[in-house]
Each structure stands twice: as structure tokens, then as C-alpha cells.
Simulated scan of single mutants.
Amino acid sequence: MQIKSKLLTLALLIGISFSVFSQGGAQYRVLVFSKTAGFRHQSIPEGVAAVKKLGQEQGFGVYVTEDANQFTDENLAKYDVVVLLSTTGTILNEAQKAAFQKYVQSGKGVVGIHSATDTEYEWPWYNKMIGAYFLAHPRQQTLRLQVKDKSHPSTWHLPDNWLWFDELYEFREINPAIKVLINADETTYEPAKPMGANHPMAWYHEFDGGRVFYTALGHVESAWKNEAFLQHVHGGIWYAAKGKLPK
């Protein structure tokens, strides 16, 4: 029993050491923030687990919180990317908003996933930063996604026409400066409030000194087990962290 106990202790120590080493050698550090003050998506746990797994596989550190008190100048300075994972409603107070704004202005990255556009409706800076506000969605459907720009790391791997099932967002107050990556083909599904031929579903832009990537996909739990979608998210995180695009 003593031998087994010592072996177990040794194994735990090795595991802890490896964890510290792998985080210490991370290419960059990602803070996943999934606080909700409105609707809470069932897919959040799957999303958190998937981003953690991406970090393990792709060599970046992942830290997860729903505590808005982590949004201070000192704490945010530790991270290269903040991932807003299906956040909803008003999630930050005025001091936390100021810290987040400084973080972006310092040249850092933001990734918004799905309902990150259903967040902070009374903060104009956030609207321009994330790129749009949620307007409506129909029932979940399969549609044709048109990949408009394959020069971005989030879309390098995708087909020109991507058949996809999800909760399909429609938007208002779209920032005209965003660079659209993926468009929804409204002729292939039944929208709630049609946007017409220009219906963005994923985009990126440089904003106020930082880099922002957003994808409206990821409502359904199954999305977080789809390899093409996971590569899409990984490419967005990598862009937000590194800012590297082909010349």
C-alpha cells in the first residue's frame, strides 16, 4: 500500500509539473469569459471544454472565468486574447469596461462567439468593437454558408460553400468597417428578419488599437465537436493573438 501511495504521489507531482511547464511555455495566453446576465446557452460547457482542448493541442494557455472582477488593468495585462464565449446582457460595470477598453487599446485581441453580440447593448464602444448587435433568429436550420474570404486563418480550411446547422443570427447596427469572412445565403433557409444578400456570419477587423474576430456560429452543442468549426475558432484566436495575415 505504501508503494502504491508513493507511486500515486509521484504521478500527481509529475502531472502538476507538466501542467506548469506547458502553461509556462505557452505561445500566448487566452482568457475565456462566459458570464451571462440574460439567456444562458446550454453549449457553454462544451465551448469551454473545446477551447481548453484546443489550447492543449495547439500550445496556448487557456484560463476560464465568469468573474467580471477579473477585468482589471493588472489582470488583463496577463492575457493576449479575451474570448467572449456566448456572453449575454450587461456583464461589466463601469470600472471593468474601462479596463477592457484599455486592454484593447494596448494592442491585444478579442474573440466573440455567438451571443457575444447579444451583450452590452448600452455601450456604444462595445457595439463598434464586436461589430454588430443581435437582432433576431429563426428556428434552428441548415443553410448554405458562403465563405467570402479564405485569406484569414479562421477560413483557410473551409469550402467555398459550407453546409451548416445552427441558430442563425440576424444583426443590427453593423459596423461598416468589419471585414466579412462568411455570409449566410438567405435563399437556403427561412430567416426571421431577412437581411438580404449581405448577411455576415463571421468577420474580423482592427479596432481601437486591437484585433477582433467574431463568429455567430456555435449555439448548438454539436458544433463544438465539429472539426471544421473548431479550426474556425482556433484560427480566430490565433489571429486575435498574433495579428498575422498573408501579405
Rank of each mutant, 00 (worst) to 15 (best):
F21T: 11
E186P: 11
A77P: 03
V48N: 00
L76S: 07
T142P: 02
V30T: 05
Q231K: 15
T117F: 02
I3V: 13
N69S: 12
G112T: 07
Y103G: 00
F171H: 15
L135P: 00
T188H: 10
E167G: 12
R29G: 03
W203M: 02
H199P: 14
H199E: 07
T90V: 10
A26E: 12
S151M: 04
V81S: 06
T142V: 04
D118G: 06
G218E: 02
A197Y: 14
I44M: 05
A241W: 06
N93K: 14
A184E: 04
G15K: 13
T155C: 08
E46W: 15
H137I: 14
A49F: 15
G218M: 07
F18N: 10
E74W: 05
K150G: 03
L13S: 11
K6C: 03
G210N: 10
H157Q: 11
S151T: 15
Y133W: 13
A136K: 08
A184W: 03
W156S: 10
Q42D: 13
F229A: 04
K35R: 12
N75G: 03
Y103H: 01
T215E: 03
E186Y: 01
P176R: 15
G38P: 07
G236H: 03
V212F: 09
V51L: 05
R139E: 10
A202Y: 09
E206S: 08
D73M: 02
L12W: 13
T72M: 01
L84V: 02
E167Y: 05
W156N: 06
K52P: 00
K52N: 08
K244I: 15
S22L: 04
H199N: 15
S19A: 14
P176W: 02
M195T: 00
Y214H: 15
G24P: 08
V64S: 09
